[in-house]
Computed example of a mutant assay.
Amino acid sequence: MLDSQPPGPQHFDALFRDSDDPWRFKTRWFEARKRALTLACLPARRYANGYEPGCANGELSAELAQRCDRLLVSDVSQRAVELAQARLAAWPHARVVQAHLPDDWPKESFDLIVVSELGYFLDAPGVDALANHARASLRPGGTVLACHWRRPIKGCAFDGEAVHGRLAHRLGFEVLTEVREADFILHVWSADGRSVAEREGFDW
């Protein structure tokens, strides 16, 4: 854990005032590859209702929209919400709302929750509350995927390893997938601990 406090909503408003793509999601191969790995790690081909908090400009959201019958995404920045709405215009079943997490967690149930590059912008109670909300709103057998940068981030309360440790502890689910590279860490958790092959009825 790092010593500094996490940034507030005004930090993200300033980022999106300066750029429509402050983390270069659209142009960096690192980001495109990470999105592809994220999608490949999802244990189901399709989901009934997905949620992506912290959607930024909607690049990952656009990919998730193609795997979900319904998709809700949110961000604390109004400008990010506007960008995500434009990015998701081709998928009318995808909805974008402004939300300050963890307090504004939606009152819905989901079979997929994707927490990507969000957790270290919260403090310890915030990460714990996010995990508690995710667990409470997850449908039986649903999936939680988290992916975070592993290196220290200036101005953030946690690094990715610490975020995933707290999420894993609070969720208490089986680990279906773990990817750990020099730059990022990715976990897939579910109360349904069956592998992808087992879910398809593979006969050993």
Rank of each mutant, 00 (worst) to 15 (best):
D75F: 04
V127Y: 00
L72S: 01
R180Q: 11
L83P: 04
R87P: 07
F121A: 00
Y120E: 02
L42Y: 08
A56P: 02
H187W: 15
I153M: 13
S77V: 04
R67V: 09
A44Q: 12
I113R: 00
L60V: 09
L15Y: 08
E178Q: 13
Q10D: 09
N57F: 02
G141C: 00
E174W: 10
L15F: 12
G165W: 02
A86L: 13
R166I: 05
L64Q: 09
H169E: 15
S4T: 13
D192N: 10
C156N: 02
L112T: 02
Y51Q: 01
L138M: 11
G141S: 00
L15M: 15
G193S: 12
I113V: 08
E174V: 10
A191G: 13
L83F: 07
V76A: 13
E174D: 14
G201E: 14
I153A: 11
F173K: 10
P106M: 10
A124K: 07
Q5I: 15
L171H: 05
P22E: 03
Q66L: 09
A48L: 15
R35A: 09
P106F: 13
S74C: 08
V115M: 08
C55L: 07
E178M: 11
R33W: 15
G141F: 04
S61Y: 08
V175C: 15
A36H: 11
V115Q: 00
R95T: 01
F173Q: 04
S137G: 12
L39I: 12
F25W: 09
D183P: 08
R79N: 08
L138P: 02
V179T: 11
V114H: 00
R87W: 04
A157M: 00
L39S: 05
W29E: 08
V188L: 04
A162Q: 11
A124D: 10
V76L: 09
W91P: 06
L145E: 01
N57P: 08
T38V: 12
A89V: 03
E200W: 06
A99E: 12
E161D: 14
L72T: 06
E181A: 14
R166L: 13
C68W: 01
R45F: 07
H11Y: 15
A162V: 14
R67I: 05
S137E: 10
Y47W: 06
W189E: 00
D104G: 00
V81W: 09
F121P: 00
H93R: 09
G54V: 03
A84N: 05
A99M: 06
P102L: 04
R194H: 12
L60K: 02
